[in-house]
């Protein structure tokens, strides 16, 4: 658990972060979202004391971090950065082993853990003896992730972790990232300026502007209950796509017609509208079989899906 209490940071005359407070629950992923210069990276770096706050306090698992040795504090926090920051003079294996070595793990333990991680991150065994410049951007970021995860820290900080990747690679790594078991048990704070990415990965989003926190909430809350104009406008350009991603079949369940019973494998109602539309587009099926929480199954086609979604939207606005 991470808690920030009114932390502020000034660079010269600019107030980079202005009394930011939030709490990240255990195993939760909080995404700091905003334009560049909004103070999100500064906020992140104050959590592992790469930047010391001018005012306010940071607690990790209930402990005030200013009372800890910064080097010891940092060895206990995983850190993934935008430019990956792998050591160019270390092999992949040595890069991954940096923190374990600082913690004086024995060689065998490091080896076993490294093997385990690269398997999970889909890296090949022979890449271990390679140098970072011999790897592709995506592979490098996997190594960066492995380096942060190797000691299995409970807290993980990520600064634009996919920022250096091309679109195709980014999307696939994001998917893997989401599915990674190791990450599901971590408390994560991640910085991004990419709204899609934030909505894809966040449990909650913290929207920042000019050093201030504008709104903290689930993606759905940000979409449907923006606190002010800034929050509304920030998402405006991609609103529809985001809504398709946020809204799940389950949400529009009441607006879907009760369809005839059909045989076959049914999909979970956890599926979002975007994915459902993609399935209908890509397969030759004209209908999807979805089973809801009430054990009831519905067969829906593209028009029914859109209609249900529209009805849901109207209901939100009137709420």
């Amino acid at each position: 658990m991470i808690q920030l209490k009114e932390i502020s940071k000034k660079f010269g005359d600019t107030l980079a972060v202005n009394k930011a407070s939030f709490k990240v629950e255990e195993k939760e992923t909080l995404v700091l979202l905003g334009t560049s210069g909004c103070g999100k990276t500064t906020t992140l770096k104050m959590i592992n004391r790469l930047i010391e706050p001018d005012a306010g306090q940071v607690f990790i698992n209930g402990e005030n971090i200013t009372n800890q040795d910064p080097d010891v504090l940092r060895t206990g926090i995983g850190y993934v950065m935008q430019n990956i920051g792998l050591f160019p003079h270390y092999t992949v294996a040595e890069n991954i082993a940096v923190v374990p070595k600082l913690l004086k793990w024995d060689k065998e333990k490091i080896k076993v853990r490294t093997r385990e991680l690269i398997k999970k991150l889909h890296l090949s065994e022979n890449s271990l003896s390679m140098f970072p410049h011999e790897l592709s951007g995506g592979q490098q970021q996997r190594v960066g992730l492995a380096r942060a995860l190797v000691t299995d820290p409970s807290v993980l900080l990520m600064d634009e972790p996919f920022g250096a990747l091309d679109n195709v690679t980014r999307t696939s790594i994001q998917k893997e990232f989401k599915g990674l078991e190791e990450l599901k048990r971590k408390t994560i704070v991640m910085v991004t300026h990419d709204v899609q990415e934030a909505f894809e990965l966040a449990d909650r989003i913290c929207l920042m502007d000019k050093g201030k926190i504008i709104q903290i909430g689930t993606p759905k809350e940000l979409l449907y209950q923006p606190v002010n104009d800034f929050a509304r406008k920030f998402l405006a350009g991609q609103r529809l796509a985001l809504e398709f991603k946020v809204v799940k079949i389950q949400d529009i369940w009441p607006y879907l017609p009760k369809g005839a019973l059909q045989d076959g494998k049914s999909l979970s109602a956890d599926l979002n509208v975007w994915d459902a539309m993609e399935l209908l587009r890509s397969s030759d099926r004209s209908e999807l079989l979805v089973s809801g929480t009430d054990k009831e199954s519905k067969a829906i086609n593209f028009e029914q899906l859109i209609k249900g979604f529209n009805q849901f939207q109207n209901a939100q606005v009137h709420e």
Partner: peptide, 11 residues
């Protein structure tokens, strides 16, 4: 970035 990575890892 390499220097920052080194710091961030607790060196």
């Amino acid at each position: 970035h390499v220097k920052e990575a080194a710091r961030a890892m607790g060196m």
